[in-house]
């Protein structure tokens, strides 16, 4: 049996950290030379040469919005993933996600907003100070982790696009490209993966757009280069490898809800009192721990987010 190794956070002086944009442009220069030469020397095809190695990020730790529980190991977080675009086994994404090209990357923003268009990732990230936030992560399958994400509040980005008064929900879409995401050649889900939040959920200070974990850029299997993190909801709400954000006036379709409406609701807030039809949600197995622990309402973020659902029957609005 494996037990948790407590992560030792070694603070990196800010002076030694390359800002994200600088890092990216440096990578671009290097990719032309070393990457290709090395790839050719080792006999790798373009598939392998394409993957970006996680690189250090400049960030400030947000202790106020971090949990004090010890984070799971980098190994656990990056080798046990649900990312069906790369296969349905937990180990598939780590093994197969190297075919995803995260550079260049752009995100299209549209719908009920004054500023719309397709923006390179660098423009999306520009002006946002990155924060490290250690969040609980609870999968609908009743396992959980603690993850030190690096990112910035989604609300700060949305404000830049000036949502109109008609914007009531935010819809997200993952990349669709079966060549890069081999799992999409099997119709297990109705690709591309889509998710959505109500506007107030999206604007909540806990809702994060993550670009990294453990101080480095996201590995592909964790949803590089840009993913959502909504810590009080089941993990599948935290959509990965986002290519489109739309502000919309009606509740948008979401992939798991469309796939099995009786099992997965639009809200999908972590709730120990509402069972999944096929298993209990009362307890969870924190990876690294042998025995199960009690699941907390809203994944332990009740004091921060319960107000969003005031007057709503959480059994109806699952």
């Amino acid at each position: 049996m494996r037990f948790r190794k407590r992560a030792s956070p070694t603070p990196i002086p800010a002076s030694e950290i390359t800002p994200y944009e600088t890092y990216l442009s440096r990578r671009e220069l290097l990719a032309g030379g070393t990457g290709i030469a090395l790839g050719a020397a080792l006999g790798f095809g373009a598939r392998h040469a394409a993957a970006e190695a996680p690189a250090p990020l400049a960030y400030v730790r947000n202790a106020a919005l971090s949990v004090s529980e010890p984070p799971n190991s980098y190994q656990d977080i990056t080798t046990y993933n649900n990312f069906y675009e790369f296969g349905t086994d937990k180990s598939d994404p780590a093994a197969r996600a190297q075919s995803l090209r995260t550079r260049p990357w752009s995100v299209s923003v549209g719908g009920e907003a004054e500023v719309t268009g397709t923006f390179p990732l660098e423009d999306i990230l520009k002006g946002h100070a990155l924060e490290e936030r250690v969040y609980r992560f609870r999968c609908v399958e009743a396992w959980s982790m603690v993850i030190p994400w690096v990112g910035f509040p989604l609300g700060d980005l949305l404000k830049r696009f000036k949502p109109t008064s008609r914007a009531k929900y935010v819809a997200f879409k993952t990349l669709y490209d079966p060549k890069q995401m081999p799992g999409q050649s099997v119709r297990i889900l109705d690709w591309p993966y889509v998710e959505g939040l109500r506007m107030d959920e999206a604007m909540h200070p806990l809702t994060l757009l993550a670009v990294g974990l453990y101080g480095k850029t996201l590995p592909n299997q964790n949803g590089a280069p840009l993913r959502l993190v909504v810590p009080w909801k089941y993990g599948f709400k935290s959509i990965k490898s986002i290519v489109r954000i739309r502000l919309v006036s009606h509740q948008p379709p979401t992939t798991w809800n469309e796939t099995a409406p009786d099992e997965y609701g639009f809200y999908s807030n972590v709730n120990p009192n509402v069972d999944h039809p096929r298993w209990s949600q009362a307890r969870e197995r924190r990876l690294g721990e042998l025995w199960k622990r009690k699941t907390l309402l809203f994944n332990g973020y009740e004091s921060e987010v319960a107000g969003l659902y005031k007057g709503m029957d959480l059994r109806v609005y699952r």
Binding site: M1, Q75, K90, R285, L287
Partner: peptide, 13 residues
């Protein structure tokens, strides 16, 4: 595998 930490991050499952 149990003796070599090879039972994945979720050994019970």
């Amino acid at each position: 595998l149990a003796c070599h930490a090879g039972l994945s991050p979720n050994p019970v499952a």
